[in-house]
Amino acid sequence: MREIFSEELKNLHVRFSEMGMLVNEAVYNSVKAFVNHDRELALEVIQNDEAINEREVDIEKRSFEMIALQQPVTSDLRRIVTIMKASSDLERMGDHAVSIAKSTIRVKGKTRVPEIEEDIANMADIVKQMVEAVLKAYVQKNDQQARKIAQQDQQVNAAFQTIYDKCIAEMQRDPQTVIGSTDYLLVGTYLERVGDYVTNICEWIVYLNTNKLIELNTNNQEKM
């Protein structure tokens, strides 16, 4: 019976990792589509979101079944809860990728500002590295690395502030860029939120190893 449970738990880990890779690809492609004005790639991101949603539902279903039927011990229950919570964060990250893709379609043909688009691309690179790193930290159960990754969110916030300041200045300088700059702000906000969700996953990794939920980047105050 224990061997069956261990195999199911291993399978759950694999499904979560695969979902993480899908989300990372969605975030990367959504920004690539936005910066390159690639409508087709944006539509692909939107269409592929269904697969991410299905993964999240499947993981949740399997998790509840394992809890109900296997009655796992505390340490195993903590692993299952971590996967459930973190997969929910991944699903929301996928939603933000879709929002970025929709912005690509919406601003098609509008006045663009290459300098701000470059800033958005650089911000996306930071976020992409965070997503890849947090998935690796999860697989390795490395809570120390998770704490370091969470600190990178400060870079994301700083990048968003730069984009925000430039967008406001650009809208004041040239009214024709108002629509495009508004979407730049939205895309920057979506990326900033993805960074927040990565931090959430970092917190779940710490919880997995320490049985303590703490708010990273907020003076490490314990939540429970």
Results as ranks from 00 to 15, higher is better:
Gln172Glu: 12
Ala137Thr: 03
Gln161Leu: 14
Met21Phe: 13
Lys223His: 03
Gly20Glu: 05
Gln172Ala: 12
Glu222His: 06
Asp95Ser: 01
Gln144His: 14
Lys85Tyr: 09
Ser30Cys: 01
Asp76Tyr: 08
Gln155Arg: 14
Cys202Lys: 02
Ala51Tyr: 09
Gly188Phe: 08
Cys202Leu: 06
Val107Phe: 04
Arg173Met: 13
Phe64Asp: 10
Ala51Asn: 10
Ala68Pro: 12
Gly180Phe: 11
Cys202Glu: 04
Ala158Glu: 15
Phe64Gln: 14
Val14Lys: 15
Asn217Lys: 11
Lys32Glu: 10
Lys10Pro: 02
Val206Thr: 12
Lys10Cys: 01
Phe160Thr: 05
Met171Gly: 03
Thr182Pro: 07
Leu12Met: 06
Asp165Ser: 11
Asp183His: 14
Ala133Trp: 05
Val107Ile: 15
Thr210Lys: 15
Gln47Gly: 01
Val127Asp: 05
Ala68Thr: 10
Val113Tyr: 13
Gln144Asn: 13
Ile120Ser: 01
Val131Gly: 00
Ala158Pro: 07
Glu25Cys: 06
Phe5His: 07
Met21Tyr: 11
Met171Tyr: 07
Met224Gln: 09
Glu91Met: 05
Asp196Tyr: 08
Val107Gly: 02
Arg173His: 13
Leu43Thr: 06
Gln221Glu: 14
Leu12Thr: 04
Leu135Lys: 06
Phe16Tyr: 14
Val131Asp: 02
Leu213Asp: 05
Asp58Phe: 13
Leu69Tyr: 07
Ala124Gly: 01
Asp125Val: 00
Gly180Val: 00
Met171Leu: 10
Asp183Phe: 15
Asn142Gly: 03
Leu22Thr: 03
Met93Gln: 04
Ser63Asn: 03
Ala158Cys: 03
Ser75Phe: 07
Glu54Tyr: 10
Gly195Ser: 12
